[in-house]
Amino acid sequence: MSRLNPEKLSVEFRDGVTTTDPIIPRRYTLTHSDITAELFLTIGLTYAYDKTNAMRDEVLGEWFKAMNRYFYYVYLHVDGPGAIAIRNYIFRRELPLALEAIRYGDREFFSAHPELNYAPIIVYFISTNSEFNRVENWGTFSDYDIEGPNLS
């Protein structure tokens, strides 16, 4: 079941990026408001560091190609203000929502490149603490498509 409320998602495409191209470089910065529960997705050639803050609770992602296969890399900074274990827990709890927001917010891109729905999502939990510094496979964007399976 979807957790994303599309009415709470704002999407901005920066210079050099359209709703369908390029694949690489295409970088995503997802931030949020704790007060309004709104999500803000910025898609550009570079990350939107101007949208981030000292909490470092944004979700950064980009497309990568190796051996003729696409991958989507996600970077989460687990270290930061507050207890690392709590930040790790919150990132894990909220990551499905973040991936739904990215998939939905860039849905025209996924329609133009349907093979990317099945690219592995590799998540880097970045921490100086070895217990929380991990790399994990979180499925594919087809797992986070709130509009249903892609039949193209």
Rank of each mutant, 00 (worst) to 15 (best):
E115L: 13
E94C: 14
P120V: 02
M67G: 02
S111T: 04
F91C: 02
N68K: 14
R93F: 08
N133Y: 06
I35G: 01
N117A: 14
I86Q: 09
Y75G: 00
H77C: 00
G105L: 06
D79S: 05
G44Y: 03
S111D: 03
D106C: 04
I102K: 06
K65A: 15
A101K: 10
V123G: 09
N68T: 12
S130T: 12
G82E: 07
Y144P: 14
F109Q: 07
Y144S: 12
H113E: 02
D145C: 02
F40M: 02
I121A: 09
E94W: 15
D79E: 13
E115C: 06
S127W: 12
H77V: 00
G82D: 09
R92W: 08
G80V: 15
Y73F: 13
D57W: 14
F91E: 04
R134P: 00
N129W: 03
A85R: 06
E94D: 15
M67Q: 08
I86A: 07
R56V: 07
V59A: 14
R56T: 11
F125P: 11
G80L: 15
R103P: 01
N133I: 02
H32Y: 14
D34R: 04
T128D: 14
L99Q: 03
T140P: 04
A85E: 13
P114D: 07
A112P: 11
G61I: 12
S130P: 13
R93A: 06
A119P: 15
D143R: 02
E58R: 02
L99H: 07
A37S: 04
F141L: 10
S142V: 09
P81A: 01
R92I: 05
N68P: 10
F71K: 11
N53P: 08
R103V: 01
P96L: 04
A98K: 10
I90W: 08
L41F: 00
V59Y: 15
D145S: 13
I102Y: 13
S130Y: 11
G105Y: 09
T31P: 12
S33V: 15
N53T: 13
W63C: 04
